[in-house]
Design a protein around this nucleic acid. Structure first.
Lengths: 337, 337
DNA sequence: TTGAAAGCGATACCAC
DNA sequence: GTGGTATCGCTTTCAA
């Protein structure tokens, strides 16, 4: 393994000079710089991360707590991880994965062992036991999600309440009844509060518009659950214009399939608004009118905030709660006005 | 930040004793052990990872190179990451993500900076430029995928050739024509050689059975590409029993949908065998007969091999190429014999 | 503009 | 059974 000593020897300078050439923290004569850079090149020198972290108290690593482990819901997770990893790399940082099933211990491990400079927590529950632990850590932590009590930790998330409102507002003009198709039981018991927030949005909007409004949970995972929920919703009565809101990304295509099988053409006999990413909405059959749920935007924002927190001399104020506004895109599954 | 010195002071012992209590590398009197453990507990001491790595030359980190970055195909990636992260944690290791768009530089960075003890490379192309670089590293590297020239690096992958053979063998008994639905152009140009291997399996098996055999690539991504490929295959001629093989996981459900739309019931008017995970196969409508493609099994095996490589005093022989046998599960989309 | 040297925190050898 | 101490490779202060 080649060290800065080797470089120094080859360049005929001291070890500290090598360090200064690399960090640029003091002026170096052009000649010395040239020799050192040549030596670095020749030996393909890269500084030892452990030594650097030990001395500088900076690991250049972002800890990412992901919801892996028995019984975890990992659907839709990849865009978060990808965006976070890319954003980290742009700032010359790497990402260390910590599995969620370690619970709070994973957080203290990251911080106490100085494994990372900052932590991103995904998949936040409404009353997440990790929040108090995270709030007490010495490293900055950012939450992707919105707990009831953030305890001062910055949060970034979609504005699900607004999303719910957008969906209902879109349908309000020309529909007689709004039905929200819910989530399977395992999701409900997890108490992820984006569900609650979305419902409070749909709920308030339906009330504001004076529209009949029902919510039907999925009694189980998979197509059977969707069928049951649609049965509960019932077929549109004669002349009734029914609007379905599907906040469960995974249920969007199944809902469209089942309606089609029942000779209810989405966009013609019934309306469907999904909560899902634009990419997904464009690839459903037929393309579904959707409220965008863009994990990449959320992750980007979270990372921007995180690096501001790390940048101690940036005095840019940090939003304690940063809610990204969704956008509704009309596609083929909602009735024309 | 609490260090082993603090623990030593509190316990009234030397720093080295603390270290030995933690590592168990020499015998300690019960009384001393008790005091040290109490101090560790009280101070919630955790050893500094950088310092430990610096001295011990072990980071307890596995580097994972993931295909993130512009234009990367990340579908189906998550189960690999999840399984690898879980397997690492079971061996008291963490996972450091490196994005693929760093290319070979990411590999040398991981190794030269001593960021990790071993590297897992995903998404291997047939002639992957990273292989020679990886082979020259000082840390063990394992490939998930099978390049043309592994250069001595251990590889773990599904046995795609066998997968192709299984699919065709299953159809051979009662079909008159085999059509393989291919991949979209971007995948083809990537030259991921599992495609080639699968085809060589279907090809050989069809020849062995003396069956008419066609391959139709998808001219583009998305449903339109699938429609075009199915058009090219043509409807079964009067009385002809047509068997479709769909090695492209993402195309499986679209194929089923389109056939159904065309009043060709899978399992009745035409047969479909997909290459996909069992979980997916069970949740398609209708459940598709599939050859299993189990990323978790592959990842598990890779990690087992990796930790054997790290375990210097394990003399268990390492398979240079470890191909996991797939399994065909008959579901509802293939004609009864 | 450059060099010498202290020290980050853990490990493990050498003493006793 | 336990303690002292050199050392890993780098950063940065202090001196020149």
């Amino acid at each position: 393994m080649v060290t800065s000593r080797d470089v120094a020897r080859l360049a005929g300078v001291s070890q500290s000079t090598v360090s200064y050439v690399m960090s640029g923290r003091r002026s170096i004569s052009p000649e010395t710089r040239r020799r050192v850079e040549a030596a670095i090149e020749e030996l393909a020198f890269q500084p030892n991360a452990g030594a650097r972290a030990l001395k500088s108290q900076r690991t250049q690593v972002i800890g990412l707590v992901v919801p892996f482990g028995p019984g975890a819901d990992t659907s839709g997770l990849l865009p978060f991880i990808e965006t976070i990893a890319n954003a980290a790399r742009e700032q010359d940082h790497d990402v260390l994965l910590v599995t969620r099933d370690e619970g709070s211990a994973g957080l203290t491990r990251l911080a106490s062992r100085s494994l990372c400079d900052a932590i991103v927590l995904l998949d936040i529950e409404a009353r997440d036991a990790r929040i108090p632990v995270a709030a007490a850590l010495t490293v900055p932590v950012i939450l992707i999600g919105l707990p009831e009590e953030p305890l001062g930790l910055p949060c970034v998330d979609m504005d699900f309440e607004l999303a719910g409102k957008l969906a209902v507002d879109h349908l309000a003009a020309n529909h007689d009844r709004i039905v929200v198709i819910g989530h399977p039981p395992d999701i409900i018991t997890r108490d992820l509060n984006f569900i609650r927030r979305f419902r409070s949005g749909t709920d308030a909007a339906a009330r504001a518009h004076g529209l009949p409004y029902e919510l039907h949970e999925l009694p189980e995972r998979g197509p059977a659950g969707v069928i049951a929920a649609l049965d509960a919703a019932g077929r549109p009565r004669r002349g009734e214009r029914l609007g379905l809101v599907v906040p469960n990304t995974e249920a969007v295509q199944p809902v469209l399939n089942i309606l089609t099988e029942r000779k209810l053409i989405p966009g013609h006999d019934v309306s469907v608004v999904g909560l899902c990413t634009d990419v997904l909405a464009e690839s459903t059959t037929p393309p579904v009118t959707n409220v965008s749920l863009e994990p990449r935007d959320v992750s980007r924002r979270a990372m921007r905030t995180l690096f501001r927190l790390l940048d101690r001399d940036s005095s840019v104020p940090i939003d304690p709660v940063d809610l990204i506004s969704p956008r509704l895109t009309r596609r083929q599954t909602t009735l024309a006005v």
